[in-house]
């Protein structure tokens, strides 16, 4: 099976589009998802910033966002995408729904890993006169580092899979290539190559993620 020059160019563009969409949305997701996860933990009852209303509201918003299937979500947020990016089509535009959907996903994963930090450790920090800010920065986040690394790994993989649906709004990418050329135009060679590429992507990220988790784990 030899791919023609045209197909190779298509493939190259698609790979770059996927890398662009996934890397930028991973960055934005981590930037917003982790703090959101922190808020979900510290506003709980008995925690360092207990706030019943905020905790409830965050929970409702997150669950609502997560309950919308991604292809529908892309369309649903088009007005917002247009407001932020200026257009609702193309790779950059897709980053908005990708990031929004992944933020809430990331927030839940962050929440889970932060909850694994024993509360006694937080109390020890309190007994030493640590502020809430210091507890978040010096206790919660560093202690949950292996779990957070795992969360980022899972989020990147989810983003790769979500980005396959970017085609709906002309976002392109490897997944979109597979659907349009491999599936809709019966080009099995494209289908085969894209699947291999996606597989390698995911595998590489998982391997790197696992390695980092092992390195950060001190238990």
């Amino acid at each position: 099976m030899i791919l023609t020059a045209n197909k190779l160019i298509l493939l190259k563009i698609s790979i770059l589009q996927t890398l662009y969409m996934v890397s930028l949305s991973t960055l934005l997701t981590s930037l917003f998802g982790v703090p959101l996860g922190v808020l979900l933990v510290i506003t709980r009852k008995g925690h360092i910033l207990e706030n019943k209303i905020l905790y409830r509201v965050l929970g409702i918003v997150i669950n609502a966002t997560r309950s919308i299937p991604f292809p529908i979500f892309i369309v649903f947020v088009i007005p917002l995408t247009r407001f932020i990016v200026g257009t609702s089509i193309g790779s950059t535009a897709v980053i908005v729904p990708l990031t929004l959907a992944a933020i809430v996903f990331m927030a839940r994963l962050t929440e889970t890993s932060l909850l694994e930090v024993p509360f006694g450790v937080i109390e020890a920090a309190q007994s030493l006169g640590a502020s809430r800010w210091q507890i978040v920065w010096k206790v919660l986040l560093p202690e949950a580092k292996p779990g957070l690394t795992m969360a980022v790994t899972i989020t990147i993989i989810t983003l790769i899979s979500y980005s396959a649906m970017a085609g709906t709004v002309g976002g392109g990418g490897v997944g979109d290539l597979a659907i349009r050329y491999g599936y809709q135009r019966y080009q099995t060679d494209i289908m085969f190559v894209t699947v291999i590429i996606l597989l390698l992507f995911v595998q590489a990220i998982q391997v790197v993620g696992d390695y980092l988790v092992r390195r950060f784990t001190r238990k």
Partner: peptide, 18 residues
């Protein structure tokens, strides 16, 4: 500030594992 004047040790040690 007051708490710095009063150290505390615990049954579960509560050390930072990282």
């Amino acid at each position: 500030g007051f708490r710095r004047n009063m150290g505390m040790i615990f049954q579960a040690f509560n050390l930072l594992s990282s």
